[in-house]
């Protein structure tokens, strides 16, 4: 009975593969953020993260998620910076509620994007994108915000003289 045995092996291998895939996978949804040592904005940075980076969920507390990077680094990200991958489909079969197809993966990259903006800009010379780009260049660093909060006795530094 060679056939059933090979089937069992196959299914075991598949189960292991699925268990790995089923670990809570999260994706960074904003341009850039930090993996932080503690669940606080002004905690030391463990690593820089960028849009699309995949993370494995470890735990969560007060809006912060403890995650592990593909490089094995563990730290915290704020819940507003990450999402569950959106490749969710309604299956024809009711027992299979959520799974992704190759086309769904391709669709995930679609929507209003730079290509659509460029096309819009070509039609609307009056829209002032130069001023938008200049606005995006106004940057305050986390260190500047921290200093501002400290000097104003605000946020995490309230009552700290």
């Amino acid at each position: 009975m060679k056939k059933p045995r090979s089937l069992v092996i196959l299914l075991t291998v598949l189960l292991v593969a699925l268990a790995i895939a089923a670990a809570d996978v999260l994706v960074v949804k904003i341009q850039a953020t930090q993996l932080r040592k503690n669940p606080q904005f002004f905690a030391p940075t463990v690593a820089a993260l960028k849009a699309g980076d995949k993370l494995e969920k470890v735990s969560e507390a007060n809006g912060w998620i403890q995650v592990k990077t593909s490089a094995g680094l563990v730290g915290w990200v704020h819940s507003s910076a990450i999402e569950t991958p959106k490749f969710v489909l309604t299956a024809a079969n009711k027992d299979m509620k959520t799974q992704a197809t190759a086309s769904e993966v391709a669709l995930a990259a679609k929507g209003f994007n730079k290509q659509v903006e460029d096309s819009y800009r070509a039609k609307h010379a009056e829209a002032n994108f130069a001023a938008v780009d200049a606005m995006l260049l106004i940057k305050v660093s986390l260190a500047q915000i921290e200093d501002f909060l400290k000097k104003g006795l605000l946020g995490d530094f309230r009552g700290v003289k």
Partner: peptide, 11 residues
């Protein structure tokens, strides 16, 4: 297996 790999479906 391929279909399920990128998903976060529960056990």
């Amino acid at each position: 297996g391929v279909l399920l790999t990128p998903s976060s479906a529960s056990f």
